[in-house]
């Protein structure tokens, strides 16, 4: 019973739920502010995403006549809930470790695919031709980036698992604990291909330039989001804010968890995620142009996939050499 309450709290309050939502929105605000600075502007206040969200709450949600209403309204809800749960699966080194039953990388991977699927559903349910193009682009992009991430996760799992004496582990808690003892995978040359592949994965998953192709405003108006308004649009904003926390948190857990405990570890984790957001997302987003979907697809089949395969091979070879 207590474990169920703990899980519920983890999903609703910390580190999922409210905490992740506030953090995600704050990250988005920081992203916009810093992007503006890099572009030579003042930019919006840090808490602008909160204002946006409150504003959307006061607006009406309009359902297009051609849309299938249930799917149209359910898509953002399902996406947000999936992200809420996955935020509870991300360990914060030295502060929070998810329930071993829950804290499984494979579950997380499935949950991470949900927002993409929701966007696809939203696009096709809205009945607009741009939504349909958004659907096909999102699908293509997902096909392109889902392969590498599975391999990356496998490589990390194998590296940890083999060192711990079994074949492979999918427990994030174990991966974090291993790194706390043996140092970051970021500094482990064998893991570098995996790190590089992950660096290609997260912009695509977060849908930022150069991979914001499904939502490209100047090409397909905002694609799947075109027909959304009011609270439903707000839910999509919530989903994307949570996703930023989940994906960046996953990156931290996989490659650079801090070896501290207590408040210091928590503050350290916050610093890590903010730095990742500003350097990895904001700077990238403003300094590049968008790719075309065919270019992105070929690009993903080439580099991240190769790197991911290389990382699995490297881990396997290293383990073979050691034994």
């Amino acid at each position: 019973m207590t474990s169920q309450i703990a899980t519920l709290l983890a999903v609703l309050l910390f580190p999922g739920g409210l905490f992740a939502l506030v953090l995600g929105l704050a990250l988005k605000g920081a992203d916009r502010r810093v992007a503006a600075r890099l572009q030579g502007r003042v930019g919006p206040p840090l808490i602008q995403p909160f204002f946006d969200l409150i504003k959307l709450g006061f607006k009406r949600t309009m359902v297009p006549t051609e849309a299938s209403e249930t799917v149209f309204l359910a898509a953002p809800l399902v996406g947000s809930v999936a992200m809420l749960i996955s935020a509870a699966l991300i360990p914060i080194a030295g502060v929070y470790a998810p329930d071993t039953e829950l804290g499984n990388l494979l579950v997380l991977l499935y949950l991470l695919a949900v927002p993409g699927i929701c966007l696809m559903l939203a696009g096709s349910a809205s009945g607009s031709p741009y939504g349909a193009i958004g659907f096909s682009r999102e699908m293509a992009l997902m096909l392109a980036y889902e392969g590498p991430i599975v391999l990356i996760v496998a490589a990390v799992g194998m590296r940890t698992g083999m060192a711990e004496g079994h074949w492979v582990t999918f427990s994030l808690t174990e991966i974090v604990r291993y790194q706390q003892v043996h140092g970051w995978f970021l500094f482990d040359p064998i893991m570098w291909p995996a790190v590089a592949a992950f660096a290609f994965f997260y912009p695509a998953n977060l849908g930022i330039v150069p991979f914001d192709i499904p939502e490209a405003e100047t090409e397909v108006l905002e694609g799947p989001l075109l027909e959304y308004s009011g609270p439903a649009l707000g839910l999509f904003k919530v989903m994307s804010a949570l996703k930023a926390v989940v994906v960046l948190g996953l990156g931290i857990a996989l490659f650079l968890p801090l070896p501290f405990t207590g408040p210091l570890a928590f503050v350290g984790w916050l610093v890590e995620i903010v730095v990742l957001m500003l350097v990895g997302v904001t700077a990238l987003r403003v300094s590049a142009g968008r790719m075309r979907i065919d270019q992105a697809f070929v690009f993903f089949l080439k580099w991240p996939l190769l790197l991911a395969i290389a990382s699995v091979a490297a881990v396997a070879l290293a383990a073979g050499g050691a034994s």
Partner: peptide, 21 residues
């Protein structure tokens, strides 16, 4: 453009009429 920057006021241009105020 940076010179006028309506984003200071929270304004944002949107591509879809459904997002507009």
């Amino acid at each position: 453009i940076p010179r006028y920057d309506v984003e200071r006021l929270g304004c944002q241009y949107c591509g879809s009429p459904r997002h507009a105020d």
